[in-house]
Amino acid sequence: MADAAQISPIQDFIVSAIFDYTVVVDNYETFLIGIWNTITLVALSLLFGGLLAVPLAVFRAERHPIFSPLIWCYTYLFRGTPLLIQTFLIYYGLGQFEVIRDSFAWPVLREAYWCALIAFSLNSAAYQTEIFRGAIEATPFGEVEAAKASGMSRLTMMRRIILPSAFRRALPAYSNEVIFMLHGSVIASTVTVVDILGAGRTVNAKYYIYLEGFLAAAILYLTLVFLISRGFKLWEKHWHAHLRPRSAASPAE
């Protein structure tokens, strides 16, 4: 837009009618903030969600008489309601109560970023719990039997045999969860966080345009998804190396 005076009206029309990339370039700092916020939000919510999900999944898979139904309720609730509502309830809903505004938790809940992180972590924990539970339950019985036969305690068996083998099985489903979380993270922009979509919206609002900010954001998300799926492919190659057919040329891999 700044250079509009230097190019001819026809060029200006074509450029601005299709995609005025200069508004994106001029606002790269906003997009950098957006990329940082999106990546940290997604990474941290997957991390916190995962830390919560592993013990929950174990309790679920073991069919613990008290915890298992409670955990079922939790995952049902968070998988059964839209992430947008969960985020609004935590951000606008909790902020409405004076008790909460006066409590020790307010310095955290006051920040839109933390509210989004809490909502995303709880949501992701619910999905990850079910992913890991399924993977644990699918442990081949032979592995469990062998572990029992060599005298492992239940805890050792869980740590050495069941969980490592479950994580490998869970990996493809887990990569879907990561991409789902990335796409879900745009919800942060509805509670004032400047994530990638938020950056696009800020730029749109600044110039009264619609296409440029959204298109730039879409390209950034596509790039991130590309990197994530490449990363998981490499990870799977590494973790599932024992499942690959051995090639005759290099038997000693």
């Binding site: 606008y92 902020g95 006051r110 920040e111 839109a112 509805t190 004032t192």
Partner: peptide, 18 residues
């Protein structure tokens, strides 16, 4: 500067003290 989609949301957050 904290930017909101609607003015109603600004009112919500000023009462929340954000």
């Amino acid at each position: 500067i904290v930017r909101y989609a609607t003015q109603d949301e600004v009112y919500l957050d000023i009462t929340a003290g954000r």
